[in-house]
Computed example of a mutant assay.
Amino acid sequence: MKKTIFGILLFSLSTLNVSADGQTTAGVGAKSCATWINLRAKTEPSYLDTTLEAMMLSWVQGYLSGASFQRTGALDGEVKHELLTLPNVDTINNYLDNYCRDNQLAKFKYAAIKLFVDVRSQN
């Protein structure tokens, strides 16, 4: 049990990255799209691979939720827009697969940003 907790802790710490592109990006959003593609291509992923993939998906969901809330203007005291209707998990996965396949050198966060822009334009 201690080894499992220690392994997860080390794995989590290894995903903490800070982008050097002028924007701070914490966590798996700073990984590359190639990481996503490689994880999704594995036919027999390890426990750590499955965990990282889930973390990356969760990071995107959190980004979409936060960006949707920010867009409302509620933090400024005046609601200007409704919360966006966010895509389901399958739609997000398909979008990330397509974006990252075409942009493997891009940071993963750019897939989330592009997805948000596309979702915003459909709402």
Rank of each mutant, 00 (worst) to 15 (best):
N94L: 13
N98S: 15
G27P: 01
T51Y: 13
K2V: 07
Q70G: 10
L52T: 14
K114E: 09
I5A: 11
Y99G: 03
H81T: 01
E82V: 03
F6S: 04
Q104D: 10
Q122W: 04
M56P: 00
G22K: 01
W36N: 08
G66Q: 14
N38Q: 14
A112D: 00
S121N: 10
Y95Q: 04
K80Y: 08
G77Q: 10
T15F: 01
E53Q: 14
G27D: 02
Q23N: 05
T43P: 00
H81L: 08
V89A: 11
Y95D: 03
M1L: 08
T43N: 12
M1W: 11
A34Y: 01
E82H: 15
D76S: 12
Q23Y: 00
D90G: 03
Q23V: 01
D102M: 13
T50C: 07
L75G: 14
T50E: 15
D90M: 07
V117Y: 09
E78V: 15
L83Y: 08
K2D: 11
L75K: 13
E53F: 04
A111I: 06
K42G: 02
R120P: 00
T51W: 10
G29I: 02
N88V: 14
L84E: 02
N38A: 06
Q122S: 15
A41W: 04
L115N: 01
T24K: 08
